[in-house]
Design a protein around this nucleic acid. Structure first.
Length: 209
DNA sequence: CTGAGGATAGTCT
DNA sequence: GACTATCCTCAGA
């Protein structure tokens, strides 16, 4: 297996500097970590979507660079965080600098800091208790549970500080019996492209095919 | 389970 | 000022 995948090892620039679909598939089972003043949260990535640099009108960079999508044109391994409907979504930039492709993190299975995630999600949903299965099921919920907002737009995820991603764990690999491929959620353009990937046996996936 | 409605930053006219 | 959007929640069937 590629050294990219080593469990507990920080994913470096080379991991992200590859074809966006390949990176998307390889991110399944990896560990997203967020270190904040409130504490540490982490979880296994179970669902992602790819946004292509070419021929993909659903990509925010489809019509060229703007202030909003600037991070997508930056180096691979940086975060692209953008606001939507009063919430945020986290993408990971892939392929060489100047090529605006990215992977949307759509759902995570929490493994560390679960109590902190419960507090954050509860606070954001009108003090209603949030089921553990729903803590990070959906891209905006991921950002709420992990306290990711616009301040992290452009952040270098290979720095190993504040927020980063580690290679696939053995436990996740065992669970990763198969990957399901479907069309992307919530996009109206290029709605037929098979660019959503999730772990088939994870109950933390946002929507099943 | 599905569908309607809330809600806000960025972009365009 | 109007329109769009990589969504979420909840009411109703």
């Amino acid at each position: 297996m590629s050294p990219f995948y080593a469990a507990g090892i920080l994913l470096g620039r080379a991991f992200y500097n590859r074809d966006v679909v390949q990176v998307a598939r390889d991110l399944l089972g990896c560990l997203l970590v967020r270190d904040s003043r409130e504490g540490l949260t982490a979880g296994i990535i179970v669902e992602v979507e790819a946004y292509l640099a070419q021929g993909d009108p659903a990509n925010h960079a489809f019509r060229g660079p703007t202030r909003k999508n600037a991070s997508m044109f930056g180096p691979p391994g940086h975060a692209y965080v953008y606001p939507i409907h009063s919430r945020f979504c986290l993408n990971v930039v892939t392929e060489p600098e100047g090529v605006p492709s990215a992977v949307l993190i759509r759902a995570i299975e929490p493994t560390e800091g679960i109590e902190l995630m419960r507090r954050r999600r509860k606070a954001r949903s009108g003090s209603q208790e949030v089921a553990d299965l729903d803590l990070a099921r959906g891209p905006a919920r991921v950002c709420e549970a992990f306290a990711i907002d616009r301040a992290l737009d452009g952040w270098d995820l290979t720095s190993g500080r504040v927020s980063w991603i580690e290679g696939r764990s053995d436990a996740a690999a065992r669970h990763n019996s198969s990957v399901v491929v479907t069309t992307r959620v919530g996009v109206t353009a290029a709605a037929d492209l098979p660019l959503r990937f999730y772990l088939s046996d994870s109950p933390f996936v946002s929507r099943r095919a």
